[in-house]
Each structure stands twice: as C-alpha cells, then as structure tokens.
C-alpha cells in the first residue's frame, strides 16, 4: 500500500512537472522574444494576491490566482498610460502592491499560513489528482489557444508596427499573451513556486535562443530543455532530498550555461562563411 502511494505521488509530481514545463517552454518563447521577463516576475508575484483573495472568498485559489494575475497584468498598460510611466515602473508598482495584499490577507487567515510557503516555493510532491485535472485543463486551453494564434503572435513579436499596419489587433493579442502568461504562472506555481516560476519561463527559452537559428527550432528546444530541466531537477530533488524548485532551477541554469557556450562556439565557426555578427568584445 505504502509502495503504491509512493508511486502515485511521484507519478503525479512528474506529470505536473512535465505539464508546467511544456507550458513554460512555449510561453517562455514569447517572453524572451517580446521582452516580457519583468512582466513574468510581476505576474507571478501578483498571483499570490489572487491566492489570498481566493482563500478569503472561498473560491478555488488556483482559479482566483489566475484571474487576479491576469487582471493585474492588463492594468499595467493602462496605469502606465495614465501616469505617463514606462511599463517597467508600472509593473514595479502594481505587482509589489498585489503581493503585499497577498501576504496581508494570508496573515489574517491563520489556518492558511503554513500553505504560504508551498505557494512561494512550490510543493510538487503534494499535487493531488484534482490539482492535476485542473492544471491539465488550464494547460491544454493555453496551448491550443497559442497554437491557433501563433503566426499572429510571432508577427507582433517581430514587428509590432507593421503587424498593426497590416490590420492585426496588436493590443488584443498582447492582452491574450498576458492572460496566457498568467495561466501558465499559476500552473507552474504548484510545481516550483511563485518565486522560481520566472526561471522556468525565461531560462529554457533563453537557452534555446542561443542554439536555434529559426523559431520552430527555438520553440521545440525551449520545450525540450524545460522538460529536461524539470525532470532532472525532480530526480535530483528526490535523490539528494533537496527542495524540488531550487533543484529544477539549478539544472536549468546549468543547461543555459552549456547552451551559451555552444551558441558562442557555433557563432565563431559560422563566421568563416558569414561574418555579420559583431565581434565578441
């Protein structure tokens, strides 16, 4: 019986990890190419405010976190315009406020305090069957939507001005991307926690960027590296009894370092037939 339980939670942890990795690999592609890394940090912090609101209002915390994070992300552009601020400043204001709200509300609801750490740092080994269904549904929704809008999202990421001139609703597409990002953050929150979710969003895609010449390869590599990092990190975590989140991030960072070296090497070699890249120093 104990053996079976053991197997079950490990299976669920692995499934949740791979799911989060797929999502983060895909969304990370756009995060890196559209320079949304800071928004990603912001969204993950805001998700904590959503969790707290969900707990207090008796709504499913994951759903509340997704909705609140998406709302916070949408409000960034508006606040920036009203206050004539750059986007990064607006992000700094909105998301620190949202996170503070989360901490405050969670401190009021006493029974919840122990869970605070699991949201911040993830608790992949505690993923339940229900969690898995919910995460799976959210993940599938995001992946299908991104696949359907991929060519438009790519165009906007490459050249927003001309995409707009071609009649694409750039602002709507941007809001869609922010919403998908919020859902992704919430899915990944269960696996590696809000503090480290950014790593899964940025590092695999950044590593893929070093290796790939064209976007299809970058997208595939981003997903593969995210999965390798997540599974590798989970195995390491189980093997040496260290926190899963931190273990995953360190494996990802090591993969990035390798990709960086490989990318530079290829550039050096490639310079023989085409030398358009600026010198290293």
């Amino acid at each position: 019986m104990a053996e079976w339980l053991f197997f079950g939670f490990l299976q669920r942890a692995l499934a949740a990890g791979i799911l989060a990795a797929c999502l983060c690999g895909v969304l990370g592609f756009f995060v890196v190419l559209r320079r949304l890394a800071f928004i990603g940090v912001g969204i993950s912090h805001a998700a904590l405010g959503g969790v707290a609101l969900g707990v207090l209002l008796g709504v499913e915390p994951l759903a509340a976190a997704a909705a609140f994070a998406a709302f916070a992300a949408w409000s960034i552009g508006r606040i920036g315009r009203i206050g004539r601020l750059h986007e990064d400043t607006a992000i700094g204001v909105v998301f620190s406020a949202a996170m503070a709200l989360g901490v405050l509300l969670l401190s009021v609801s006493l029974e919840f305090q122990s869970d605070l750490l699991s949201y911040l740092f993830g608790n992949i080994l505690a993923v339940t069957q229900t969690d898995l269904w919910l995460l799976g549904a959210m993940g599938l929704l995001v992946l299908v939507a991104v696949a359907l809008l991929f060519k438009e999202l790519l165009f906007v990421a490459f050249d927003e001005e001309v995409a707009e001139a071609s009649g694409l609703p750039v602002r709507l597409l941007h809001h869609f991307l922010l919403t998908a990002l919020a859902l992704t953050v919430v899915v990944a929150m269960r696996v590696i926690g809000l503090i480290l979710v950014e790593a899964l969003l940025v590092i695999p895609a950044a590593a893929a960027f070093q290796l790939a010449r064209r976007y299809p390869a970058m997208l595939v590599l981003s997903v593969v590296l995210a999965i390798v990092g997540t599974v590798g990190g989970l195995v390491g975590s189980y093997q040496w009894n260290v926190p899963a989140g931190a273990s995953i991030v360190l494996v990802l960072a090591a993969l990035f370092a390798l990709a960086l070296v490989a990318g530079r090497l290829r550039t050096q070699l490639g310079r023989i037939d085409a030398s358009p890249l600026p010198p290293a120093n």
Binding site: L33, F158, A163, F209, Y215, A217
Partner: peptide
C-alpha cells in the same frame, strides 16, 4: 517602416519575414 525597429537576432530567416507579410 523606418529602420531599425526590429531585432536582427530574432530567430527568423528572410523567408519567414516575407511570409509574415501574408498574415
């Protein structure tokens, strides 16, 4: 548009960029 508004290291080749025009 006026240059340069794009990232030259964006992972697309000439063909991909021209295909975007058909979106």
């Amino acid at each position: 548009p006026q240059r340069p508004v794009f990232d030259p290291y964006f992972p697309v080749c000439v063909w991909d960029v021209v295909m975007m025009g058909r979106t």
